[in-house]
C-alpha cells in the first residue's frame, strides 16, 4: 500500500508532538515512493541532528519499508521561527 502524505503528517504530529509538519511527495509521478518532510517539534530541543532524524525514522519505521527515500528537515520551534523571519 502506498503511504500518503496525510498519513505521514498525522503520524508525525501525533507521535513527535510536532507543531508544524510539511510533507511533500517528491517521487517523479507522485507515486508516494519518496517524500520530503519538514518537522517542527519541541522534542528536538537539545538533540543533535542525527538523533532528531532517528526520531523521525523511528516514528515512520513502518512507512519506511515502502518509502524509497525520505528527505528530512528537523527544527525546534525556535529554529522554525528564525527561519521564517529570514
Amino acid at each position: 500500500m502506498a503511504e500518503t502524505a496525510d498519513h505521514i503528517r498525522d503520524k508525525l504530529i501525533e507521535e513527535l508532538a510536532a507543531v508544524h509538519v510539511d510533507v511533500e511527495d517528491t517521487s517523479p509521478n507522485r507515486c508516494a515512493a519518496s517524500f520530503k518532510v519538514l518537522v517542527v517539534s519541541s522534542q528536538f530541543e537539545g538533540k543533535p541532528l542525527l538523533q532528531r532524524h532517528r526520531m523521525v525514522n523511528t516514528c515512520l519505521a513502518e512507512e519506511l519499508k515502502e518509502i524509497h527515500a525520505l528527505e528530512q528537515k528537523t527544527l525546534t520551534p525556535e529554529q522554525w521561527e528564525k527561519q521564517k523571519s529570514q
Binding site: 541532528l49 519505521a61 519506511l64 527515500a69 528527505e71
Partner: peptide, 25 residues
C-alpha cells in the same frame, strides 16, 4: 547503522548520517 536509507557516511567508524545530515553539516 539502524538507518533506513542509502547513502550512509561514516567518519572514523562513527555513523555520521545520510545525505540530508551531510548537507546540513
Amino acid at each position: 547503522s539502524n538507518w533506513p536509507t542509502i547513502p550512509q557516511v561514516y567518519f572514523s567508524g562513527e555513523f555520521v548520517g545520510g545525505c540530508d545530515i551531510l548537507l546540513q553539516m
